[in-house]
Simulated scan of single mutants.
Amino acid sequence: MLRKLEIDALKADLSAVDALLASRSEADDPIGWYQFSSRKEEIQQALGEVMTRAVTHAELGIFFGGGPVQGSRGINADFAGKALEDLQALVSKRFSGREFGRLAQRGPVPRVDTSQMLVTNIVRGSVGFVLEESGSNPQMVETPLKTAVDEIADILSRVGADDEAVFEEAATELDERILVTLRQFFQRLDEQGATMRVVDGTRDFLLDRHAVALARERTQAIEIVERDAEMTGTLFLLPDSRRFDFYTVGDDGGQLVLKGTVSPAVIRQIQEQADIEHPPIDARTLPQMPWRVEIRTRELRERNRAPRQVHTLMRLVGPDG
């Protein structure tokens, strides 16, 4: 079960047992007092184990409400199937973009089989689904798919936020393929009058009708144009924070400084997990000589706003000269 839901259920059980204990005394009902006290200890132990358990695989809880849902009875099958398909597409595109580089504007997503989620539970109430990573082997560290799922959940939480600055931050994380699916997803929710609650690890947020309509409006009003370019210059890289500063010469002959995030492929090079094509690199030596690098620039164009550029360091090609 999704850890956040498991914690919530145990806390609810603990609250119920506390109420029962408060309604009686050990002297008046020694057997009941003993039974409920033992039950309380069991719940507290289970709660402690769940809260300290590391979650290293991908898991996501999606709860729908509004138009497509009939109370706790069920949900429109066509809506549920297509909405889950959109969510899986968002996860697959994010995962493939992180692991295999820039996606083509059209065509199949590379290695989509490695990012497939399983529906492991159906939750009643406002009808919901628990999605989990298909792999069953325990992991010592977070899987790449968990990182992708966490990032999609973060984008969903921000794209419908009232605070424009929160949305602007989310927009910098989008690419062309993800934006297309987001448009489709929020259009589907808005046209069906649906709401959505998302539970991801310790995160729990609701996209109500206002947030869904706002997310639809925003995703339809934004356009993203991407381009990759190889450049030569001085690179300063912070692997822990996954940020970089790159100093090069601009088209006008003056100094040009690009700042942004670092792709997982570069991190693998730095952490000595690279393949034959990209040998390991010591980050401390990077500023000592000019480097040729590949940088992806995403230009975000929104109505009535000046275009904004977001940079990602995609690959360390090699020392120049």
Score class of each variant (00 low, 15 high):
Val310Tyr: 02
Ala229Trp: 06
Ala46Ile: 04
Gly32Tyr: 02
Ile295Phe: 01
Gly318Ile: 06
Leu237Asn: 03
Ala148Arg: 02
Gly101Ile: 01
Asp78Trp: 06
Leu118Gly: 06
Gly61Ala: 06
Asp78Gln: 13
Pro30Asn: 09
Ser96Leu: 04
Pro138Ala: 10
Asp208Met: 05
Gly32Glu: 02
Asn304Tyr: 05
Glu191Asn: 11
Lys82Ser: 12
Thr52Ala: 10
Arg111Gly: 04
Glu302His: 11
Leu238Phe: 14
Asp320Met: 07
Ala9Pro: 07
Leu47Gly: 03
Ala170His: 00
Ser23Trp: 06
Ala148His: 08
Leu207Asp: 00
Val293His: 03
Leu84Pro: 01
Val123Ala: 12
Glu294Tyr: 03
Val119Arg: 07
Glu151Asp: 14
Ser15Gln: 12
Glu26Gln: 11
Ile178Met: 15
Ser25Ile: 06
Leu14Cys: 08
Val109His: 07
Thr114His: 11
Glu142Met: 10
Ser23Pro: 05
Trp33Ala: 03
Arg305Met: 12
Pro138Ile: 08
Arg216Tyr: 11
Ala12His: 15
Gly71Ser: 12
Thr52Glu: 10
Gln255Met: 10
Ala46Trp: 03
Thr172Gly: 14
Lys4Phe: 06
Gln139Ser: 15
Ser15Asn: 13
Thr181Ile: 08
Asp28Gly: 12
Leu207Ser: 01
Leu207His: 00
Ala170Ser: 11
Gly101Ala: 04
Ser72Lys: 14
Pro307Thr: 03
Lys4Asn: 10
Glu223Gly: 15
Pro279His: 08
Ala19Cys: 04
Leu235Trp: 02
Leu131Tyr: 01
Phe63Arg: 11
Val50Ala: 12
Gln45His: 13
Ala170Gln: 01
Arg124Met: 08
Tyr247Ile: 11
Gly321Thr: 05
Arg24His: 08
Leu286Ile: 09
Ala211Asp: 14
Ala221Gly: 13
Ile43Ser: 03
Phe167Ile: 04
Arg188Cys: 05
Asn76Tyr: 08
Pro319Asp: 14
Val130Cys: 13
Asp29His: 14
Val166Asn: 07
Asp154Gln: 10
Ala58Gly: 10
Gly201Asn: 12
Thr202Leu: 11
Phe129Lys: 01
Gln44Lys: 14
Asp113Asn: 14
Leu131Arg: 00
Pro287Asn: 10
Ala153Phe: 00
Pro264Ile: 07
Gln45Arg: 14
Phe244Leu: 02
Val50Gly: 07
Glu277Arg: 13
Asp208Pro: 05
Gly193Lys: 04
Gly66Lys: 05
Thr261Asn: 01
Ile31Met: 06
Glu133Cys: 10
Leu174Gly: 00
Ala9Gly: 05
Arg177Pro: 04
Lys146His: 09
Ala46Glu: 11
Met314Phe: 00
Glu42Cys: 14
Ile222Lys: 03
Pro279Arg: 10
Phe186Gln: 02
Arg124Lys: 14
Arg301Val: 13
Leu313Ile: 05
Ile62Leu: 12
Pro319Trp: 09
Ala22Pro: 07
Met314Ser: 00
Ser126Glu: 13
Ser15Ile: 06
Arg243Ser: 14
Glu223Trp: 09
Gln116Ala: 12
His210Cys: 10
Leu182Cys: 03
Asp154Pro: 05
Glu142Thr: 13
Val257His: 12
Asp252Trp: 03
Ser15Lys: 14
Glu299Phe: 02
Val119Glu: 07
Glu41Ile: 15
Ile122Lys: 10
Gly97Tyr: 00
Gln273Pro: 09
